[in-house]
Write a protein that binds this DNA or RNA. Structure first.
Lengths: 215, 215
DNA sequence: AGATTAGTGACAGCCACTGACAGTTGACGA
DNA sequence: TCGTCAACTGTCAGTGGCTGTCACTAATCT
């Protein structure tokens, strides 16, 4: 985050070079992952395409998985900020809902600064359809949920470890969000428009689904 | 499932031998995982302790992770059966809740038939606290949720792909269940009693947490 | 008993990842 | 402008999970 802003204005030749190789590694990796599949892409292959050694790849990214989630975590951070920014008078679920809506409307340019949006969309779908990555994605999601629960608890002036409601509300909300992502991943229409619409639709069904009778 | 019943009555020498090595591999693996940690245990080590080749380990278990989830998936299957067995008049959330309660009350002996319960408890806590395993656990959980959603949909005479409510209800429920498991994993008290009580407590908070104001 | 077949071990190899060491090249003060 | 320092990188060797192959042993079948 901060380092990207710092690197945006040309600091030094060294910095710029570093940023270039990192960007190249990222873009080439995602491109290879999405075209030929995650498992069928080796780290050697990525490194070779960028003309660096495999060792260098691992100096920029902690693991092969790590590359796949670079952009995703930017988006997540943005969503978390959005939750923090919601006015205090909104009740928890409303705040969460408005935060998602706002986040989906504004991530566009943030993503584009690093990789083409369309590449990110394909990446997301690849994550959803690659077991090993899906697993990591889910774990990361619960970590995010933890952070969100903390924010919600603070908004309401509660202790997260005392009152279960923040965590539970976020867990339920998170469950629905993951369902949304999954359904979107299975679709052909991979536009921001589509995911926004699907999000709204799923959230509309949350409360009725938990009600007693479904008549 | 079926193969275990079949193997219970001594079929042939071959079968019995197979079952013995499989059981040994399972038990030794879990024991090593829980005492010295998952990452710090190598497959070679497990194989050596059971006096088979590493290759043989992989003939019984698809992966190192696979061993860790053997018992867990038995429990999950049992829960799924419990959901199927709930009387039709119960509404979705009630049926799910009763199914969990019943499952936690009856898994005991089923587990004990394979490994000591206490070993399974430690295994579960290890899964929760090992990032790589937690990730896989979460993915497996969503697969289970899929199956449950299908059952719920059928109970209510709905099409899972048509009406979103089954999936959403299960997603929310699943979110809460995972929260339960996690909280339990962080506790010292690793008894079946404790997890049952925690389950009830979390589920009691589900509906109030989704309500408008938390006053 | 002999033919068949399942189960196994030994070995070779792929790939993700790590540590150690040495070479290169920007940064920066003299 | 020129070294010197520190950062960045490549090479190499090694570990651990996992797979394919092949020959060998032993349980099962006829």
């Amino acid at each position: 985050m901060a380092e990207q802003l710092a690197a945006a204005r040309a600091t030094g030749l060294r910095e710029r070079k570093k940023r270039r190789t990192r960007d190249s590694l990222l873009r080439v990796a995602l491109e290879l992952f999405t075209t030929q599949g995650y498992e069928r892409t080796t780290v050697d292959e990525i490194a070779e395409a960028v003309e660096v050694s495999q060792r260098t790849f691992f100096r920029y990214f902690a693991s092969k998985e790590d590359v796949a989630f670079t952009v995703v975590s930017m988006v997540e951070a943005r969503f978390l900020d959005a939750v923090r920014a919601r006015p205090a008078h909104e009740n928890p679920l409303t705040a969460l809902r408005n935060a998602v809506t706002w986040a989906w409307e504004s991530v566009g340019e943030a993503i584009e600064a690093v990789v083409p949006i369309e590449l990110h969309m394909r990446t997301y779908q690849m994550i959803e359809s690659t077991p090993a990555l899906l697993a990591v994605h889910l774990r990361r999601s619960t970590e995010l949920e933890d952070a969100i629960a903390a924010v919600i608890a603070e908004r309401e002036g509660l202790d997260v470890d005392e009152d279960l409601r923040p965590r539970i509300a976020v867990a339920a909300f998170g469950g629905v969000m993951r369902l949304t992502g999954r359904m979107w991943g299975q679709r052909e229409d991979a536009s921001l428009e589509a995911i926004r619409e699907m999000t709204a639709r799923c959230l509309d069904h949350l409360e009725p689904a938990l009600g007693g009778d479904w008549t």
